[in-house]
Nucleic acid binder design. Structure first.
Lengths: 239, 239
DNA sequence: CAGCTCAACTTGTATTTACAAGTTAATATT
DNA sequence: AATATTAACTTGTAAATACAAGTTGAGCTG
């Protein structure tokens, strides 16, 4: 219903190219159309193209080489998209399934958000809470809890987080981009709840990440807590 | 001896501003001189200033606000600079000391570098190996091992890594910038060596990060392995 | 004194133009 | 057939110019 605010051309081009890469139109090692070609194709000038490409470089989608071109790096796996690195081979996406443990629903905050203090406007609204479990070869390997403040997010409850990244939905549906954040990492001993989720027989070491995502919407943050059983698969990321 | 290759003006400005921030000339919350002021002061044009500022934004040093200015965020603590988050208060830099466990020296690789395969040119040269321990309130909290290929790094052995970040030295002395990388995170049980370094009485959980740093120098990577005792302090980072 | 207006600042976005430096492949030469 | 040269491509860097949109504070008005 509400008309999407017009995006500047460099952001439109950025989204087009990003989608082309994530949809597999380009594979790792492919070279994107040259800057001059993108100018012609999208009726913008070279600095505009370069600004879109710079964002793709920044996020790890492409690598530029002077004189050669913009080389696709594939799907980066950084802050938003966590993945696992097997002890013998990398795990493909197809072996990782997501189970919604508790669907996103409106609830109240605890005193804080995973140890991060809340600001006054956050405290005044509730938050959406979502819990997911990621499973590899029938073995649960990570469990994550997400808290998103209930501020101007129409139809948030009905969105499907099984197959899509929260980051993606925030960016495309609400024009809210993660621009940075803080994270705390620690190695803990699995308590009973975690042992249950991961089907563990003993209290072994578990990796825990608490994160506060800072966004392009001023004063709007969201929070996540990830538990990861790294006995068989390390938690892998690019940066 | 060797003349430093001339840097483009936007990189010179970037280094100046970055140093001003890290030296404390600007504190968190301060506003940098405006883009127009920086143009006048440094005799460059606004697109050049903006390119320098964009890199500072990218790395987390500043946050820009339209109509207001470029707000200093303080020293970001991301990929290169790890820090600790206390359970009751953040730890200032002054409480963290670094002890060189084994000074950088030339040695041979193992089969790989912390699980990351080596390319042929890396295999043919040895690497510098450096081991450091970080101590908070007399308690060792992290231990890290760094491997750097012996490729065109004059006077590397004599550099002081106690007070300066490896990233900094690489960037300023060799114009080698970290442009990305991969990392694996896992929670392990402390073995005897780790227990010894951290003064532990039992085999408690320890956080381990294995990292491969990709640099602006084609084909040049370096590697690190960090062990962190997060019982009292989580490992903290911004991104 | 409070509220409004608006000028002067700030950053955001974009075009146009130009040259530098790296890469590639076609062509010429030996 | 191998090697060198060079044209035509690529990205990297930079200036000049213009307007959009957000913020701030001085000055005016009631």
């Amino acid at each position: 219903m509400g008309k999407k605010k017009e995006l500047p051309p460099y952001k439109i081009l950025y989204e087009i190219l990003r989608k082309q890469i994530t949809d597999g139109l380009y594979s790792k090692g492919d070279i994107l159309p040259s800057e001059n070609e993108l100018c012609s194709t999208h009726s913008v000038t070279r600095p505009t193209v370069r600004k879109a490409l710079d964002r793709l470089v920044h996020e790890g989608y492409i690598r530029k080489k002077q004189g050669k071109g913009s080389i696709v790096q594939g799907q980066p796996q950084g802050v938003g998209i966590l993945s696992l690195s097997g002890t013998t081979s990398a795990i493909g996406k197809e072996n990782l399934t997501t189970k919604i443990v508790i669907k996103q629903h409106l609830t109240n905050w605890d005193e804080d958000a995973f140890g991060f203090p809340l600001n006054d406007s956050e405290k005044q609204v509730g938050c959406y809470r979502l819990e997911r479990l990621r499973i590899v070869n029938k073995q649960p390997v990570f469990y994550d809890i997400t808290l998103v403040p209930n501020i101007n997010l129409p139809r948030f409850v009905s969105r499907n987080f099984e197959n899509r990244s929260l980051f993606d939905i925030m960016r495309t549906a609400y024009q809210i981009e993660v621009i940075g954040g803080e994270q705390k990492l620690m190695a803990i001993t699995a308590d009973e709840k975690i042992q249950k989720y991961f089907n563990l027989k003993s209290a072994q070491p578990i990796l825990r990440l608490d994160r506060k995502m800072e966004t392009s919407k001023e004063g709007f943050f969201f929070y996540s807590q990830v538990y990861c059983n790294t006995a068989d698969y390390a938690l892998y990321g690019t940066f």
